[in-house]
Simulated scan of single mutants.
Amino acid sequence: MSLVAEYEPQDPDDAGDPPVPQLANRSFPALGTMVSISAPLAPDELEAAVQTMRRVFDETESYFGVGGRGSVEGLRRGEIELRYSHHRLRTLYEQAIGWRNATEGAFSPHTPTGPVDLRGLVKGWAIAHAGQAMMDLELPHWSVTAGGDVLCSGSPFPAEPTGSDPFYGRHWRAGITDPFDTDALVADVPLAGTPGFTAALATSSGHGYGRSNAYLQVSVLAEDIVTADVLSKAILAGGPATLDAAVRELGVEVLVCGHDGDLHASPGWPLHPAA
């Protein structure tokens, strides 16, 4: 029996959370997309954190970007041999092989014709290291978004713990866009909420590939962004068998949209209204 059940977004009038308070926000271009950072900080404090994050994404461009010492594009085009590439690129390849094994080949670090292709890991790598940079700065409350993928920690509205419940504070909220209507959401997902707890949400789309993929869109909720990002791609490619294995063995939650527009969610997917 499949681990996914039919999913219906709830009525927005049923929302229990109060509105998210005003946050300090910054955005900048990197890796061919826009990176956005939000945190309940004074604007000048956030600006200092953003400079650290910029360095993370600049280093990612240097390590893995076009023209870098370890260019993923050079590998994909066959212009660079993996054994002569930067050690960080070789480490990334080892991680990709691990994911290929974990997904039984649904995620692959190679193109269909054979060359190494690590583009599917670079963005997640950068977001993960940006999040670690925030932790190193001892900033427990923040959200980082890049190309639609989200990693967050703590709460947009920090609160003191009450009682013995380790989970407290208001959640971050991430919307998942309707693949048939970019002005609408199919889900509004609560993330993190407590200092020391991170949450990640990644969405992959099969638009432009006809019905060669089992699903039109896959969103994965996990504790870390690399897991969420990789598995959203793997489930899109591998279909129901990969989805069931990911939920059962890797502890993630999944929301998929079929080519007919039907939504299906894993049992632990957080039911929350689309605001």
Rank of each mutant, 00 (worst) to 15 (best):
T203C: 03
E47A: 15
T60S: 09
T242A: 02
A48V: 15
G78Q: 09
E45L: 14
G261W: 05
G78C: 03
E59R: 09
V72N: 12
L243N: 07
A202Y: 06
D14G: 03
T52D: 14
E223N: 14
E8W: 12
A228S: 08
I97D: 06
E223Y: 10
G114A: 06
G175Q: 01
E104Y: 12
W125Q: 13
H141D: 14
M1Y: 00
R83A: 02
R100Y: 04
E138F: 04
G16N: 14
L185I: 01
T182M: 07
E138R: 01
L185F: 02
I176W: 13
H264P: 00
G78L: 07
D183I: 06
T60R: 04
M135R: 14
L201H: 05
L216I: 12
V218I: 07
H207S: 13
V220E: 09
I176H: 14
C152S: 10
T162Y: 03
G98N: 08
S153N: 12
G124H: 09
V20F: 00
E61A: 12
L151F: 00
T203M: 12
G114M: 05
L263P: 04
D11N: 00
G74L: 10
V218P: 05
V247F: 01
R90S: 02
A199I: 06
S85G: 11
R248F: 11
R88T: 07
V116G: 00
S38D: 11
R100D: 01
S164P: 04
A146C: 15
Y63M: 12
A187Y: 10
S232H: 13
